[in-house]
């Protein structure tokens, strides 16, 4: 196992100790190692440098590297916490941790707020929501008249922007999602419960002596 370990660290510069990553997240050591199998495959799909760049991330999401998508870009930026333009293994595990079924709801709400606060102003503003809505319409087959888009925005801000100052703050967002729990569905990935069975090859590449379950 020793030769695997040193080789893996050379090839994956941001690779952190799976035992430490497991201690910081809802994942077991085995699950962290299974996630590494997924990470290896995504991070080698375009440039085999042990890091995930935006093109590789979009390729993994859409199975088509030509697809540009503002939502995928936004998720990538939130995974790339060190703002390096690439996602290392530690970033990958800690960001996916928020999507674990056992992760605290507070963390999911925080992440979703940042997702929609595209400008990072600390508020979800109407122009941001409009931009995302228009992007969604371009991406889907859905065709809506401009007036309908405005009516949807009016209705959304009437419900979410309780103090009616034209923007949604964190407290208003927490209140809004508690009234609309379906909005948090995208923040939980049931797949994360089964990653050791999805990527069973992790047992051959394990760096730890005993696989915790």
């Amino acid at each position: 196992m020793g030769c695997f370990s040193s080789k893996a660290r050379r090839q994956f510069p941001g690779r952190e100790d799976p035992v430490i990553l497991a201690s910081q997240t809802a994942f077991t050591v085995s699950e962290v190692e299974a996630l590494f199998e997924l990470f290896k495959s995504i991070s080698s799909s375009v440039i085999d440098d042990g890091l995930i760049n935006k093109e590789e991330f979009q390729l993994a999401l859409f199975k088509n590297k030509k697809k540009e998508n503002i939502f995928a870009n936004r998720i990538f930026d939130l995974f790339d916490v060190k703002r390096k333009g690439v996602i290392d293994f530690g970033d990958f595990v800690r960001a996916l941790n928020v999507f674990h079924p056992n992760a605290p709801l507070e963390d999911k709400i925080d992440f979703s707020f940042k997702l929609y606060d595209m400008d990072g102003t600390g508020f979800i503003e109407r122009h941001e929501v409009k931009q995302m809505l228009i992007a969604l319409l371009c991406e889907s087959e859905l065709r809506l008249a401009d007036e309908t888009v405005e009516v949807i925005l009016d209705k959304t801000f009437l419900e979410a922007d309780v103090n009616q100052d034209g923007k949604i703050d964190k407290a208003e967002w927490q209140d809004f999602v508690s009234r609309n729990p379906s909005l948090m569905k995208i923040m939980t990935l049931p797949y994360l419960r089964d990653i050791t069975t999805t990527f069973p090859s992790f047992v051959f590449h394990s760096e730890v002596d005993e696989i915790a379950t």
């Binding site: 995504i42 199975k63 995928a72 995302m132 969604l136 991406e139 949807i152 925005l153 979410a160 995208i186």
Partner: peptide, 25 residues
């Protein structure tokens, strides 16, 4: 009377927000 989806319900249907596809081989 059909209820209109709010903007976030619509946005959350984007394929770019469906990270589940990362796990599909």
């Amino acid at each position: 009377r059909p209820t209109m989806m709010n903007a976030f319900e619509l946005i959350s249907t984007s394929q770019g927000l469906n990270l589940g596809t990362l796990f599909e081989k």
